[in-house]
Design a protein around this nucleic acid. Structure first.
Lengths: 335, 335
DNA sequence: AAAGTTATTGCAAACGTTTGCAATAACCTC
DNA sequence: GAGGTTATTGCAAACGTTTGCAATAACTTT
């Protein structure tokens, strides 16, 4: 069943035209007579003809590929297994496809430090979507400076030379915390890593909400990696050493919230009665957990779409800027 | 900061050699004098030189890319957001990279029906990893028949012309069910879709375990989509219409188990006291849920590695066959 | 029916690598 | 130091598209 690959010149011969005509016909160039065009396309379909993308990319100097780079610090942060991040990637995949591009999935392992060289000069992709600002954005900046078409999923408030698409993390933090307070919590705990770009904005929102009711609320911050496991451990330890010193938790992500929830439940601390809990992201599990998780929903689908649109605009030499995606407080049982 | 892309011929000129020599030097061809080789490589590093992969692929007729196709039936099945599937993809990504290949992430949206034509003839990738057998394997078979280097994540027991790597689903189902019985359950519920390739083996295991204690166990099957939501709904409905007719559930996936768990908890049915619950996959949430979920752990990391190894072997014209990956019962609180 | 337009096609070069083969340089051996 | 062997390099063709330009074919218009 293995047959020799048909190339354009063969197809042209079959149709009795030159390769130029065949090429133009396949690309729907209107300069070719419609009858000829249809005939050739028909023939192509019949013979399952496919263009050699390698040749085509070489000639056109573009790839119709978008690279997605997962940008995580080694092991101190959100892991690559974080369901939220994977959801973002999956949504980006959809959005990319809808625009007729393909998605090259990458991490720093392959790309090294010189993203511009690797992806753009290397003609592996026409543009880059970076998922995760990380704590230091050296590589992103460098790639941008070298002129890589580039867009970042992160916190749009960060000053930058490249467009960032992401949720309004500050507002999210503010709403979440206001909500905790409205539900009667007055000893608030922030669970997350304020050193991380996006999280720091959520933290700012947290502080701002507390500031609004000056004096009425106590606050403490527990700095942890963004994993459910770290959350579980730290809450456990906190309860062990200090007892229940809080009645409201703003967790910087749902995974963190779920880890905390587990620790609380194990000690029969009632959520939401003893402790009100709000997460961030609205991953699938938020709804399935028991009690279901009040959270700040991030609209990843819309964000993915905007990321791609903005990237394509750059390929088109338009200037684009950062954009905040609306968030939404989903009030469920945990608060 | 945008400078013209350096090409091989420029680099050669800088080094005072021919492009042939430069090319060979970069590819570490030992025929080139070591001094020359190092000098050129050094120069390449200094100038951030990168080969144009389009040209290189055209010339070499291979891409060093592996395509991963997510193969899901429209909407009746596991969704693309299923954390387990995403985990599999992520593990494959790692394994692919470790072998020096890149990962093209794809779904049927782009690839259409003719995978061989699209990926292989189109020179988009050297081989295919298909994630998910789905209910019908027409496209896979066709691609394999046409000679596409191909390997599938699915149930290895399925008779096929192509290698399948996956867990021993039958054994998993058997162990899970035996465990339920050992824990005292005698009215067992299977929650999943026996029409699905992998699930059907788990179901066989379920039946076999019950057969072993002939007469002692009642069983029922609720056929649902593989989502937590469907599980939640169906358990809810079952409880509403028939009451608590079971004391043990084997859920075909963790997400399904978690959906069921939620429905049970909402009605204050104790897990594991009233109902013992076992899931499948061991997603991250299994450990974080409360009670934590007893489950059959699938070793996706090993599986990913084997998938890639077997695919590369095929590229090397070796004949490879299917392989079962060991599973493991993780006994946690839900049983 | 000749001249002028316009619609349609083909020629040939270019995209940037890699590699078989031939050529040269470097080294031995006697 | 001549002849032979081996190590190192360069020439030029090939991979399969796309496209500017020139050429031809097909119409108009008078």
């Amino acid at each position: 069943m293995e047959q020799k690959k048909l190339k354009l010149v063969d197809l042209a011969k079959l149709a009795g035209v030159s390769t130029s005509t065949a090429s133009r016909a396949l690309n729907n160039n209107p300069v070719i007579k419609q009858a000829t065009r249809e005939h050739i396309q028909q023939l192509a379909k019949e013979h399952n003809f496919t263009l050699n993308t390698a040749a085509s990319r070489l000639r056109l100097q573009k790839t119709k590929v978008i690279a997605v780079v997962i940008n995580l610090e080694a092991n101190t942060e959100q892991s690559i297994d974080d369901p939220f991040l994977l959801k973002v990637v999956s949504d980006i995949n959809q959005a990319v496809n809808r625009q007729g591009y393909e998605l090259l999935l990458s991490n720093s392992y392959m790309a090294g430090d010189d993203w511009y060289g690797y992806f753009i000069d290397g003609r592996r992709a026409d543009g880059l979507i970076v998922v995760g600002q990380g704590k230091q954005q050296r590589r992103i900046e460098q790639a941008a400076k070298q002129g890589a078409p580039l867009v970042v999923w992160g916190d749009p408030k960060t000053p930058s030379d490249y467009p960032i698409v992401g949720s309004d993390n500050y507002l999210g933090g503010l709403l979440a915390t206001e909500h905790l307070i409205a539900r009667g919590a007055s000893n608030l705990l922030f669970l997350g890593d304020p050193g991380h770009a996006e999280i720091s904005e959520r933290y700012r929102g947290f502080k701002a909400a507390i500031e609004q009711v000056k004096g009425e609320c106590q606050q403490q911050t527990v700095k942890i990696d963004i994993t459910s496991h770290a959350a579980y451990e730290s809450i456990n330890q906190l309860l062990r050493t200090e007892g229940l010193t809080f009645d409201g938790i703003f967790a910087c992500s749902d995974m963190v919230a779920l880890g905390a929830l587990k620790a609380l439940k194990e000690r029969y601390i009632s959520v939401p009665n003893d402790v009100r809990l709000v997460g961030f992201d609205d991953i699938g599990m938020a709804d399935v957990s028991h009690p279901s998780l009040t959270t700040i929903r991030q609209n990843t689908q819309l964000a993915a779409k905007m990321l791609v649109v903005k990237l394509l605009a750059q390929l088109n030499n338009e200037v684009v800027d950062s954009q905040e995606i609306d968030i939404e407080l989903l009030c469920r049982q945990s608060s």
